[in-house]
Amino acid sequence: MVQAINRAMFEAMRADPNVLVLGEDVGVNGGVFRATEGLQKEFGPDRVLDTPLSETGIVGTAVGMALYGLKPVAEIQFVDFIYPAFDQIVSEIAKFRYRSGGQYPCHVVIRSPYGGGIKGGLYHSQSPEAYFAHTAGLKVVIPSTPADAKGLLLSAIFDDDPVLFLEPKRIYRAVTGEVPDGDHRVQIGQAATVRPGSDVSVFAYGAMMPPALQAAETLAAEGISAEVVDLRSLVPLDEAAVLASVEKTGRAVIVHEAPRFCGFGAELSAILAEKALYSLKAPVVRVTGYDTPFPYALESLYLPGADRIAHAVRATARAA
């Protein structure tokens, strides 16, 4: 997946001289995950900027660049370090268009690896998408396959709105797949029904997709048909796809690695309660990280895995 992300940036920078990349260690070093490998060599240090160690500065200056028509793609090395830039993202980027009556759109793309599974402890594992999805005016996109990563990132770079692009670093290299060449785009705001099924809907995104699919495979052998939907974009959310799936199956399991309380699953549950209650045959179930800070030694217990997901889907399928 990380190569697909890298290729998306190559494509975008070749296609449009206004695209520019900035962040810590993104140039000479090619990014600590090598997502920006080779970019500085091809496009030079003025378009691929190794910045000082200041997320505030990275995002704040990206805003100014965007106001002047550049298309900055800012990298935050780990999303756990995004909080110094929270001010710029929440108070500035997400509100610029609105507060200026449309005079100053602020199209910044912020890429950042998120999530656990690399033994990163409290500060290299977080999954903070809910904070950002709660912010009006900001799109939040999370791919789970290499092809989607390229297609969604290209769409994000050429979108009109600011996009927080969260990359599941745990599957940067673990997940492989065909990636179309050239200007391959995937529309932001469309979920993908990756595995159709009839008994239970499983909603997941990012690094939770592989265990969700694995659980579905296990359950198929037991005669339970799970439909797995990759949300791909949290804002805007493909509500139609979510509702259609539950109207069909009548049962829903929501999976994310972020803590449960006020996590994105709470929003999905609320939507199902508001708009699909009469289709539901069983309570909605969430399989999530626990409401603790992300642990180091016990991360495999903290993270939902295929077994935990299958366990929950099984129970949901059997609930009267």
């Binding site: 520019l20 003025d46 378009r47 505030t56 500065g57 995002v59 704040g60 200056t61 990206a62 805003v63 100014g64 660049m65 965007a66 106001l67 002047y68 028509g69 550049l70 900055p72 001010d87 710029q88 108070s91 500035e92």
Partner: peptide, 17 residues
């Protein structure tokens, strides 16, 4: 103060363009 970094970014864009 948020406008300060934004101003620097726009100045960077002026220079780049």
């Amino acid at each position: 103060g948020t406008q300060i970094t934004q101003g620097v970014g726009l100045a960077y864009a002026l220079k780049a363009k």
